[in-house]
Design a protein around this nucleic acid. Structure first.
Length: 587
RNA sequence: GGGGUCGUAGUUCAGCUGGUUAGAAUGCCGGCCUGUCACGCCGGAGGUCGCGGGUUCGAAUCCCGUCGGCCCCGCCA
């Protein structure tokens, strides 16, 4: 007899003889009759075991406990009206067992896999295969599979070619730390796991593939967060003979199509913000546009203020900015303290409150602002009675970042973030490079292969910090979903950009020689993007951690609690690789 | 590298101003139960209080260190 899915059975099957194979989800033994909820990936159905009618089945199934794997044959029967369970998809029927057997017993589980999560993350990760039996996680894996499938289908329909690039590749330190793999054949040499297939996909363009896509596993040896895992999956895309608009249109279409598949309508085209606008108005290069709370420039009316925190910051070339929190004038001391703490964590000196009451405006520091200044602030911040404003002063970058963090935190606390909104946007015109004080050199904001904006290219030598790049990010609800750029396809331009980054010709030759070489053999203009598949699925699943959409995720310290990777290895293995440990292994 | 927080039966937690034998729920084991669906009732077993050190007559409780989970800053071209 063919196996039936437990969750597929219904009133149409009444009278049918069926065979179930699955897990005992729950067992209720009433002495004279036993109910077994049998679960497989399709769902759950109730099996009734009656010792009087089917003594053999009853004996065989008697030892079965939660999560034992059993096989049951029986007839689908309608439940009596009063026995119908409306909470169960299959609640109108049950399977009356005529035969049964245990296929595989189970030790008692460390935690329940039915109902709500009641175990710690640590326990769940150690027994990941049990946690994955949970309906929610299973659904997330299915969602991920379907999204992956839809993505590939979308690109396939548009003549993209899926190409697998190497996992064992070359270390190109200039960005995240690499995971290294020692070579046995070439002792003392190392492969690196790719941080992204960036150079390979560009070289695919030189190879004339024109349209490349890859569901690409990437690796970065950096500290983790809820939205950052050491290995993650990118939807990696590259195209020849395109400009920004082609990439935007393609990717917007992708999101429209993938989200439509989940019943979510996305508007096209996505709004765009330049990096400068995003930082000024939202204090972030990945602003969450589901809510307002736009940051206002307040320097104009405060330059002559007697309040030194304001006038001093402005005199030092800094800024004073703030934003309005509607109806928050009653914010508690504790809440305000929390905001101050958050601001300081982001490097600001703190944050000051301005409360608009019915008849007066109260600044946190008493008697330092004149009436005209208060009036100016009320106007600039568009405060109405009952509102509160958060104001910060200091160096532009710090103020922007701190207010950006406050904007998000306050919106969350005050429940100003609407649910079920999907606010995509493009952030464009990133700076090409950024000066790093600690090692006194420029670093690429995106990566060293990003093309400079032709409008700014004449300043490349004299004022590189002011040069914009042809890079862009796609952002959804405050989360960076991906980034890309139009690349440099001209060897000379690539060389001068390396130079700008303090990479000498010899060094560039050593590290990126293969790219420079390729660029001299008819490299087409090209550009692309890489999207974080894990993050996309996380948002679609409504999860708040990447761990919930990755089958076997790692902990915050980059370990796998199930396999206990990373692990020590036998000395023989190290010897064979020519590796000697300079430090005692931990633990 | 830094900050916060947590770590006590299999699991989730309570206990923490130091003081008899460390509790609850759930799970597990045994018994009873013919319509439950988080079944119910009765009984039982189950502990390196993360680990190490210190203070003390006495430490789950206080102190120091360390390990691990989670969140955040730095970092993530």
């Amino acid at each position: 007899m063919k196996r039936s899915g437990a969750g597929t059975l219904g009133v149409d099957d009444i009278g049918r003889q069926v065979k179930l194979q699955g897990w005992v989800h729950r067992r209720r033994d009433h002495g004279g009759v036993t109910f077994l909820n049998v679960r497989d990936r399709s769902g759950i159905v109730q099996v009734v075991v009656r010792p009087e009618d089917a003594p053999a089945a009853s004996d065989a199934l008697a030892p079965a406990r939660n999560e034992w794997v059993i096989e049951v044959e029986g007839v689908v029967a309608a439940r009596a009206a009063e026995a119908i369970n409306p909470k169960m998809a299959t609640g109108e029927i049950e399977v009356v067992a005529s035969r049964g057997s245990v296929l595989s017993p189970s030790a008692p589980l460390p935690f329940n896999v039915d109902g709500e999560v009641d175990a710690s993350e640590e326990t769940r990760l150690r027994y990941r295969y049990l946690d994955l039996r949970r309906k929610d996680l299973y659904r997330n894996l299915v969602l991920r599979h379907e999204v992956t499938f839809d993505v590939l289908e979308y690109f396939h329909q548009r003549d993209f070619i899926h190409v697998e690039t190497p996992i064992l590749t070359r270390s190109t330190p200039e960005g995240a730390r690499d995971y290294l793999v020692p070579s046995r054949v070439h002792k003392g040499s190392f492969y690196a796991l790719p941080q992204s297939p960036q150079l390979f996909k560009q070289i695919c363009m030189v190879a004339g593939l024109e349209r490349y896509v890859q569901i690409a596993r990437c690796f970065r040896d950096e500290d983790l967060r809820a939205d950052r895992q050491p290995e993650f999956t990118q939807v990696d895309v590259e195209m020849s003979f395109v400009d920004e608009e082609d990439v935007f249109e393609l990717i917007e279409g992708l999101f429209v199509s993938v989200f439509a598949g989940r019943g979510i309508e996305i508007e096209q085209p996505f709004p765009r913000l330049t990096y400068a606008e995003a930082m000024a108005r939202y204090g972030s290069d990945k602003p969450d546009l589901r809510f307002g709370l736009e940051i206002q420039e307040l320097g104009g009316g405060l330059a002559a203020s007697e309040f030194r925190a304001f006038s001093g910051a402005l005199a030092d070339g800094g800024v004073v900015r703030g934003f309005r929190l509607p109806g928050a004038a009653g914010a508690s001391r504790k809440q305000v303290d929390g905001w101050g703490k958050l601001a300081r964590r982001h490097g600001a000196a703190g944050v000051l409150t301005l409360r608009r009451r019915e008849s007066e405006t109260v600044f946190q520091v008493k008697n330092v602002l004149g009436d005209d200044e208060l009036t100016f602030l009320v106007d600039a911040l568009e405060l109405t009675p009952g509102d509160l404003a958060l104001i910060a002063a200091g160096p532009e970058r710090t103020v922007a970042t701190a207010l950006g963090a406050l904007r998000v935190a306050a919106a969350g606390e005050l429940e100003l973030i609407p649910k079920d909104r999907w606010d995509f946007l493009w952030v464009t015109e990133f700076p090409l490079v950024e000066w790093h004080e600690d090692d006194e050199r420029y670093y690429a904001v995106n990566h060293p292969f990003t093309a400079p904006d032709p409008r700014d290219v004449d300043r490349l030598a004299d004022d590189p910090a002011s040069v914009r790049s042809r890079g862009y990010d796609v952002v959804l609800n405050g989360l960076e979903l991906g980034g890309g750029s139009i690349r440099i396809h001209d060897r000379a331009m690539q060389q001068s950009c390396f130079e700008l980054l303090g990479i000498s010709a010899a060094e560039a030759e050593e590290r990126f020689g293969f790219l420079l070489e390729a660029l001299q053999f008819g490299a087409p203009p090209h550009g692309g993007i890489a999207l974080g598949l894990d993050r996309i699925v996380m948002l679609l699943a409504g999860a708040d951690s990447l761990r919930d959409v990755i089958a076997f995720p790692k902990t915050t310290s980059a370990t796998d609690l199930m396999t206990e990777a990373p692990s020590r290895v036998e000395s023989g293995q190290l010897e064979e690789l020519g590796v000697v440990l300079a430090v005692e292994p931990e633990d």
